[in-house]
Computed example of a mutant assay.
Amino acid sequence: MHLIELYKSVQGESSFTGLPCIFVRFAGCNLRCAWCDSEYTFTGGNPFTQEEVIAQIEALAPCKLVEFTGGEPMLHAKELLPLMDVLLTQGYTLMMETSGERPLDLVPKAVHKIVDVKCPGAGAAANSFRLSNLETLTKNDEVKFVLTNRADYEFARAFIAEHRLNDLAAGVLLSPAFTKNPSPLRTVENATLDPRTLVEWMMHDGVDARLSLQIHKFIWEPMKKGV
């Protein structure tokens, strides 16, 4: 498997926000979201065996929360799924950030999937979500929408209602996108959609979702890697 980086930080998103977490970031992505903040993962990376990845994770003990991200980790499913099985038997809590474009039916049910449904503002990646993946969702999982504007919000609101996402998953995340060229300031001014505006829409419409702010972009400078 090819990895871009493996490091320990705090979880910046989802219901695990703020918890110490080990991040295993895979190389490569088959989508090109207009707002992507991880373009450095598209190429490169270094090869690792399963044993080498586990050794690096163990070296970051005592942290027992691990997230697989990318890029798109499910492009490495052949290597990733057996790795998940081993880590689960060792008592780790596992998360995976995925676009939902790849089939998710073989992912162990114990893994907490954060599944990203692409909105129109994602550009070429919009409408890439594999609807059959809704059948794989459990109460361990969360569904995320990255929003750039009102049209994205309305798309997410309709999708949540149409597919009754809160009946399928543990919750829904609405996350304002960040500009691809942010200032070094740790401020909401770098968001393409003002979080306060988004909260006002959510409260007005009674949307059953959680605001997700990527807190690592407020703890460190927004473009900082490995945090």
Rank of each mutant, 00 (worst) to 15 (best):
residue 193 L to C: 10
residue 203 M to D: 03
residue 45 G to H: 01
residue 199 V to T: 06
residue 178 F to Q: 01
residue 77 A to I: 04
residue 35 W to E: 01
residue 107 V to H: 05
residue 205 D to I: 15
residue 167 D to K: 13
residue 97 E to L: 12
residue 75 L to Q: 04
residue 172 V to K: 13
residue 221 E to W: 11
residue 59 A to F: 13
residue 123 G to F: 12
residue 6 L to V: 06
residue 56 Q to V: 11
residue 81 L to V: 00
residue 161 A to G: 06
residue 23 F to V: 08
residue 176 P to N: 08
residue 15 S to L: 15
residue 132 S to P: 01
residue 200 E to Y: 12
residue 123 G to W: 15
residue 2 H to G: 05
residue 226 G to W: 10
residue 135 E to D: 05
residue 59 A to L: 14
residue 127 N to H: 14
residue 180 K to W: 01
residue 82 P to H: 14
residue 7 Y to K: 02
residue 137 L to Q: 03
residue 128 S to H: 03
residue 35 W to Y: 15
residue 98 T to N: 07
residue 52 E to H: 12
residue 125 A to V: 02
residue 21 C to L: 11
residue 188 V to L: 13
residue 175 S to K: 13
residue 202 M to P: 04
residue 205 D to V: 06
residue 1 M to L: 11
residue 140 N to V: 07
residue 149 N to V: 08
residue 29 C to A: 08
residue 92 Y to L: 13
residue 144 K to C: 11
residue 104 L to C: 10
residue 73 P to T: 05
residue 92 Y to T: 08
residue 171 G to M: 10
residue 27 A to S: 09
residue 104 L to Q: 06
residue 136 T to Y: 04
residue 119 C to M: 12
residue 153 Y to G: 04
residue 178 F to G: 06
residue 44 G to F: 06
residue 55 A to I: 11
residue 61 A to M: 03
residue 28 G to R: 02
residue 165 L to Y: 08
